[in-house]
Design a binder for these strands. Structure first.
Length: 363
DNA sequence: CCCTCGATCAC
DNA sequence: CCTCATATCGAGGG
């Protein structure tokens, strides 16, 4: 278990690339894949954009309206997200990728880790050759491009796959780790987002080289034991996480944007009910019972509030589910000042059904 | 040790 | 102008 060779594979601008594959005519244009909310009009956000669009500042997460404004002078297409199609494309690609791995870890529709230590006999040249073959095979069979990072661990490979995109291949050998990381922005470390970055900016810390100078005790004080230690190790490229198949999902959630902002119980109740129905169906499809139920408000100002409750016993009875969800809603509304923009429901603390779903069948 | 809740990340 | 879904951590209270 001493040394490893790990790949991180990332499909380039995945949803937008899928759309280009389906309709190559749009490849020369700006392509933005949109998630429209239930408000109508252009309310919603960008899921992904191709590189033509990114040149104009259009990226995932920004409002559709803003993206349209940025691209108003351009030849651009705005397409509604078609997740079934992307999932199908993803499955086909993952099927190919698995074959190249000793151990395969699915991370999401557009991401995976591979441990290839055995397959490459721990040889970097073999690894680079294998990665190139893999890129070729998925390009030839699906017309899909991806970027791959190769290194001794998951952390470095993830950073490396992001280093050169699209269609990149980046290797970080053990002796190159320090040099590779030094010049990078701390934001490149997965898990360091906007908030964490802001804290370091305040301290005039921008690069990983600068980050390395901070004491682990100080980091622990600032971010807590787990995160502090994680950041400390990451700055040195240290990561012991093994590549392994993903454990089963431990929660399901659904959230909707309300037709209008509101804090009226009856209106919110109807929306919650709909979400309960969909989630309960999902639980049953997956043979899961849940023990915890939660609701979430996203307020007008985008701040959020959650309420949750644990049941004595796991179950998946829709009537019980709704009763608890409505109660949580009522409780949450008591102190509620602001209008609610979006409302969500969550179930967790799963246990498997195992045929004990219907106790009457025992008699 | 268990529960609830907010914060953060990242998509 | 602001989607959707999941996971994780830590504080605070029992």
């Amino acid at each position: 278990m001493e040394k490893r060779i790990v790949f991180h594979i990332d499909f380039d601008y995945f949803y937008a690339q899928c759309e280009e594959i389906r309709n190559p005519k749009i490849k020369s244009k700006c392509v933005a894949v949109c998630i429209f909310s239930d408000r109508g009009g252009d309310s919603g956000a960008i899921a992904t954009a191709n590189y033509n669009a990114r040149k104009f500042g259009v990226k995932s997460g920004i409002p559709i309206m803003l993206a349209k404004n940025k691209l108003k002078e351009q030849d651009a297409v705005f397409l509604p997200a078609d997740f079934d199609y992307y999932s199908d494309m993803s499955s086909k690609a993952m099927e190919i990728i698995e074959k190249y791995a000793d151990v395969f870890e699915y991370v999401g529709r557009d991401e995976a880790y591979l441990d290839v230590t055995q397959k490459t006999e721990m040889n970097i040249h073999n690894a680079e050759h294998l990665a190139q073959q893999l890129k070729n095979e998925i390009r030839n069979s699906l017309k899909l491009t991806c970027s791959i990072g190769i290194s001794p661990n998951k952390l470095l490979s993830k950073i490396a796959s992001d280093f050169k995109k699209p269609d990149g291949l980046t290797t970080v050998k053990p002796e190159q780790v320090e040099e590779f990381l030094s010049s990078l922005k701390i934001r490149e470390i997965p898990g360091i987002g906007k908030k964490t970055e802001d804290v370091f900016t305040q301290m005039n810390i921008h690069t990983i080289e600068e980050l390395r100078k901070i004491d682990v005790f100080d980091l622990n004080k600032m971010f807590g034991r787990k995160t502090g230690t994680y950041i400390f190790n990451s700055a040195k490229g240290i990561d012991g996480e093994t590549v392994r198949p993903r454990p089963p999902t431990i929660q399901f959630s659904k959230i909707v944007t309300l037709k209008k902002n509101s804090k009226e119980f009856e209106f919110l109740r109807e929306n919650v009910e709909e979400l309960c129905v969909r989630l309960n169906k999902l639980a049953i499809e997956n043979s899961k019972m849940y023990r915890s139920i939660g609701i979430q408000f996203v307020n007008e100002d985008l701040s959020s509030k959650t309420k949750s409750r644990m049941m004595k016993n796991p179950g998946n009875n829709l009537v019980e589910f709704k009763k608890i969800a409505f109660q949580l809603l009522e409780d949450a509304l008591v102190e509620q000042e602001m209008l609610v923009r979006r409302i969500g429901v969550r179930i967790s603390e799963f246990s498997d059904m195992e045929g004990q779903s219907d106790i009457t069948s025992y008699f």
